[in-house]
Amino acid sequence: MTTMTTTMTMDPVTINMVMALTVGVLYAVGFTLLLSRSLMRVLIGVVVLGHGTNLLLQLAGGPPARPPIVGTAPPESFADPLPQALALTAIVITFALTTLLLALGYRAFVLVGHDEVQDDVEDRRIARQKVPSAPLEAGDGDEQDVESADDEVEAAAARGRDAAS
């Protein structure tokens, strides 16, 4: 390895403007689609993002060069093979994830009649609450009990406010 690194000159790996722009657009479109509510748009966003990522991974190896197949060109002119191998793996993995998300979208569509991602019901409920549900002291079993305990806590708080003012 030491011999190789000393003899090989360092090619600048800097990504050029055109490719940077391409990658940037792919990411921008992917991100934007990802933020929408339709699972199908999200999915397409993932795919676009995946293309952007794979392209970036390949670009990380350096500027265009000869395919790294020994015997077809002098080794000094080869493109860095490692990012290619990594990108290949990444492509297959992205494909696997895409199909899985596709199936999930299909199932969501069949189950609920559309493929939109709904807000979490429990979170919304808590956000609307003024007093925590299931207060600690209550819980003899009936709802009334819970209510009254809520009242007590509220009343205690109100008393405190009155006293403070």
Binding site: V13, I15, Y27, G30, L34, L39, V42, V46, L49, G50, T53, L56, L57, L59, A60, G61, L82, P83, L86, A90, L97, L100, L101, L104, V117
Partner: peptide, 21 residues
């Protein structure tokens, strides 16, 4: 779960690409 995880995976991959670069 799946969507957030996918985003994190893709960002991870992006980070790897940038680290390699």
């Amino acid at each position: 779960y799946v969507t957030v995880s996918l985003l994190s995976s893709l960002l991870f991959l992006t980070a790897i690409a940038l680290i390699y670069a």
